[in-house]
Amino acid sequence: MFEARLVQGSLWKKLLESIKDLLNEAIFDCSSTGITLQAMDSSHVSLVSISMNSDGFDTYRCDRNLSMGIHLPSLSKIMKCAGNDDIITMKATDDADTVSLVFESQNNEKVSDYEMKLIDLDTEHLGIPETEYSCVVKMPSSEFQRICRDLSQLGDSVVIACTKEGVKFSASGELGTGNIKLCQSASTDKEEEAVVVDMNEAVCLTFALRYLNFFAKATPLSAQVQLSMSKDVPLVVEYKISELGFLRFYLAPKIED
């Protein structure tokens, strides 16, 4: 028996909205410690990693490890049927071929339940090594979203250059060039609005904006986003999922032709 109840059900809605355009299907691995997901996009350029700790749920029970293959656009459609303030419970029996979703309004006057078919998926899990990154930038997630959107007007790629002074995002194309520089915040009165650069070594890397724009769909999940970079390795774009865990996107760099 698997059951996970989340009073802040809107987190599920936001999480699905964050990944459903990048991934068509994925396995939710449920165990006694929580729910994890790892999946590559269809082009194998990026990878999504989700971790939700059992402690972060209001009720959590998982008697046997369970791998639920889910068609994400379908789950997203069902999640859209939940109100923003609803409590969401996900349930499955062992060896089930369906998952149940129960949406309760805060005042308990409305309860909806949906059942969705699971799918057979055979995906490979990649080992992601623990890495010390040369640069870690924390910034408002809305700012990151805005920068990716704006620079997409100019080109397909963004060059991210990080030094101890700050971080610079640049794009160029037929119509010209654009540069957006963010300096490290002088004061950190409002933690959510701060730009913080933690740098061991300056880096300059190129990434496809198309993917960063997909990642930025996670903006409603968290006020801050964290970018971790080292030379010649994938960028990590991390959004915290409240007290539950994290949503991380890994993006392979582009190299000069």
Binding site: V45, V233, Y250
Partner: peptide, 14 residues
């Protein structure tokens, strides 16, 4: 295309 690397070339399959 255009020098885009694959994520699977960085992370190993166990």
């Amino acid at each position: 295309p255009h020098g885009q690397m694959k994520i699977s070339s960085f992370f190993s399959s166990p």
